[in-house]
Every structure is written in structure tokens, then in C-alpha cells.
């Protein structure tokens, strides 16, 4: 069984700081990590490999520094890693990104058929959850999003059964391979990298694919990067503060009890609906 896992290198949001005066992001020195949601996809792929055997290939599209994310994935146990990197990809929105990734996966398929493509449910920097569905459509693969559990994979029957999170419940779905699965968080935990894999990851000859190597012909340059992106950012701005700042509750005594009583009485005067809501709970 051959599983391709799409990952993305993202800035560690826990360490992003906002400039207190200009309200802009201070990107300097923010460490890059593998998108946390993608780790659930990678772990799920590695579990299937443990069970059924096979190969796990990780791919990412990004700048040359994204190599670090791929080496990390190798250290967890992925077998091969491909970095799709070219200036021509810069400025891609989700439509252009799915074109490039799908094209690269088609190249991978030329060497070894791909049974499944795994992605995280979304990234933590873009939060769009669109690239997975886009790649599935372009590869004409069955799409299984928000998969909370892989119930069974039968490679010989080319069949997979999964639980998919829907709005009010869970759908139990059966489909045929090849398929693309976006894996929901929380149902597994990334394994620790072991010593042999860490050594292997450091030495592994990473494949670097430029546009042509990713299978994108000259004619298709209009489908990648900025040119291939229908959406355009027309403006970026800091959120406007609400018309008024918070009314600060200050009491002479500095006693929390007095603060609590003060804020409640102010609130009930100005927001009778809140007082009503709370009164409801007394009954």
C-alpha cells in the first residue's frame, strides 16, 4: 500500500507575537513547525503501514526551508520525502496550490501507484480546509473529509471504511481506493522518532522538484502561483478597535468582592437582557 501524506510547514502560532504598537505580526525568530493537524494524518498513515505494510511518502510545497519539515516527517518513520519548490509557485491561493500538489502526486504515481492521499483537516495559518478537497477533485479520487476514524482498509479489495464527522453525528462511509482522506485531530498521537529513523532522516536524499519535475508544463504556468490564483488580497488591515474601550471597573478598596458587585450592578443596568437571562436560571 502506498500512502502520500501532504504536509505544510507553518509558523508556530503559539510563539507568534504581535507588535504592541503597530499591531503587526513579528515574524522574526518564529520557529517553523509541521502544521499540527498534518501530524494526525501522518501518524494515521504510519499506523496503516505498520498494519498492512507499504510505503509512506511525504510531500510539501514551500520554500527550500520546508526541508526541515520533511526531515522531521522522515524521522517519525516516513519512507520518502519530496519538496516541491519553485519561485513560480509563490503567491498561490488554494486553487493554485491544489493544482501543483495534484500534479506532483501524478508524477509520484508514475513510479508507484498511490492508494491513498492523506492531509490534515486544515492548516493553522490558512485555516481554509480547501486544498484537500481540491487535490481529490483534480486527481478524480474519492474524497473523505473530517475522518475521525479509519474503521477498516482492505487493500486486496481496494476498499476503505471510515467514520466521517458530520454536523450532528458521524457518517459511516465505504468507498473504493484510491481516495483522499482529510484526517480529524485527536484520534491518535504522533509517535516519538526513534534513533535509527533520526539517523536515516538526516542522511536521506531528499527529492527537490521544481515546476517541471512536478509535472507542470509551460502551458500550465497560468494555473500555478499568483497567476493561477483567482482570489486576490485587496487589502490587509489591523482590526479596528470598537468605538469605545472597555469601561474599567475600579474600586477604592481594591477588593475583588467589591469589583464583582460593581460590575454586576453596572451590567444589569445597561443590559437588562443579561439580567433576565440570569434570572431565568434561578427558576
Amino acid at each position: 500500500m502506498h500512502i502520500v501524506v501532504c504536509i505544510k510547514q507553518v509558523p508556530d502560532s503559539a510563539q507568534i507575537r504581535v507588535h504592541p504598537v503597530t499591531n503587526t505580526i513579528m515574524r522574526q525568530g518564529v520557529p517553523a513547525i509541521i502544521n499540527p493537524y498534518d501530524l494526525f494524518a501522518l501518524e494515521e498513515a504510519l499506523c496503516l503501514k505498520d498494519k498492512h505494510g507499504g510505503t509512506v511518502t511525504v510531500i510539501t510545497m514551500g520554500p527550500p526551508q520546508a526541508e526541515a519539515a520533511l526531515r522531521k516527517a522522515l524521522s517519525f518513520g516516513a519512507d520518502d520525502a519530496i519538496l516541491i519548490t519553485d519561485r513560480a509557485f509563490a503567491g498561490a491561493d488554494t486553487l493554485a496550490t491544489s493544482f501543483a500538489l495534484a500534479s506532483a502526486i501524478r508524477q509520484i504515481q508514475k513510479n508507484m501507484p498511490v492508494d491513498m492521499v492523506f492531509t490534515g483537516k486544515q492548516t493553522i495559518d490558512g485555516d481554509t480546509a480547501q486544498v484537500g478537497p481540491g487535490v481529490a477533485k483534480r486527481l478524480d479520487m474519492q474524497l473523505l473529509t473530517y475522518v475521525s476514524k479509519i474503521v477498516a482498509v482492505k487493500p486486496e479489495a481496494s476498499e476503505i471504511v471510515v467514520e466521517r464527522r458530520a454536523e450532528g453525528g458521524v457518517q459511516l462511509l465505504k468507498t473504493s481506493l484510491p481516495c483522499l482522506v482529510t484526517v480529524l485531530e485527536g484520534n491518535n498521537q504522533m509517535r516519538f522518532a526513534n534513533m535509527p529513523n533520526m539517523f536515516r532522516a538526516a542522511r536521506h536524499p531528499l527529492k527537490l522538484w521544481n515546476r517541471e519535475e512536478a509535472g507542470i508544463a509551460d502551458d500550465d504556468i497560468v494555473k500555478i502561483g499568483l497567476k493561477g490564483s483567482p482570489t486576490v488580497v485587496s487589502k490587509v488591515f489591523a482590526p479596528t478597535p470598537k468605538s469605545e474601550r472597555a469601561e474599567m471597573i475600579e474600586v477604592e478598596s481594591g477588593d475583588p468582592k467589591d469589583m464583582a458587585v460593581t460590575v454586576l450592578s453596572k451590567m444589569f443596568t445597561r443590559f437588562p437582557a443579561v439580567e433576565k437571562e440570569i434570572a431565568k436560571r434561578a427558576r
Binding site: Q130, G132, P133, G134, A136, R138, L143, A166, P230
Partner: peptide, 19 residues
């Protein structure tokens, strides 16, 4: 939602439009 995002990403890609 899980349904809307699943559908939107697929439809936008099929129609080759911006989302």
C-alpha cells in the same frame, strides 16, 4: 461547516473559481 467546506472546496475546484 463540515458539509459546507467539503462541498465548497470541491465545487470551486471543479468550476475553477475563487473561494
Amino acid at each position: 461547516t463540515t458539509q459546507g467546506r467539503d462541498l465548497a472546496g470541491s465545487v470551486a475546484t471543479t468550476l475553477q473559481t475563487g473561494l
